[in-house]
Design a protein around this nucleic acid. Sequence first.
DNA 1: CTACAATATAATCATATGCTTATACTATTA
DNA 2: TAATAGTATAAGCATATGATTATATTGTAG
Lengths: 108, 108
Amino acid sequence: MDQLTEAADKLKLLGDKTRLTILCLLKDREWCVCELVEVLSISQPGISQHMRKLKSHGIVNESRRGQWVYYSLNVQDKPYIHAVLDYMPGTAGTLSLLNRQEPGRICE
Amino acid sequence: MDQLTEAADKLKLLGDKTRLTILCLLKDREWCVCELVEVLSISQPGISQHMRKLKSHGIVNESRRGQWVYYSLNVQDKPYIHAVLDYMPGTAGTLSLLNRQEPGRICE
DNA sequence: CTACAATATAATCATATGCTTATACTATTA
DNA sequence: TAATAGTATAAGCATATGATTATATTGTAG
């Protein structure tokens, strides 16, 4: 797959508000699925499917610990994605755009 | 519209290979519609529709001269879009990815 | 082992998207 | 004014996408 096809495919992942919001939340720390469900207005399977897409493109890492699955950013080697996120709000700013509080750390 | 919604909507425009290719071609000079048609494998109305979307989001400028309509990048004030394009090939590199030559400058 | 909690997958559906062809508009030129 | 070239809009269509609900899977705890 050529450079532009691959870039377009990755940028398409950022072109969805839910996924972009997730990536912004991940800027400062890892999040488990249930926390994302608590903060975003979307069902648990909805979150899982977004995370699968992000993972399949290598944009997030998955870490299973106990019954929780934590996701973290993996964009060190994707400069144009990293650059976009640099201009986006981090965890706190994103939560405030969502009119949400930090979720209770139920997990662990 | 909040910051993330607007950013996602603009990034969505970059998440299509045809549009991303057009924006890369525009990095070094303006292009008219007929040149884009000559270089990309898509119909003239297809190009026009992509340009309308890009224009409606302020990502390109339109300049009508004679019977030709020229489009140019307008991303100075859109830092995260500008940053993405900085990592993408310019006109020559994009043409070579497409296995195309510079189109004959039929216009003007 | 059973019950429950967290997550993933499957199936489904409504809408969005990108393309095409046909047609309309606009500007140049004969 | 008529013909033509460049571009835009309209309509139609196949596919992609993002969501939901139902169900399966996995892990923990009693």
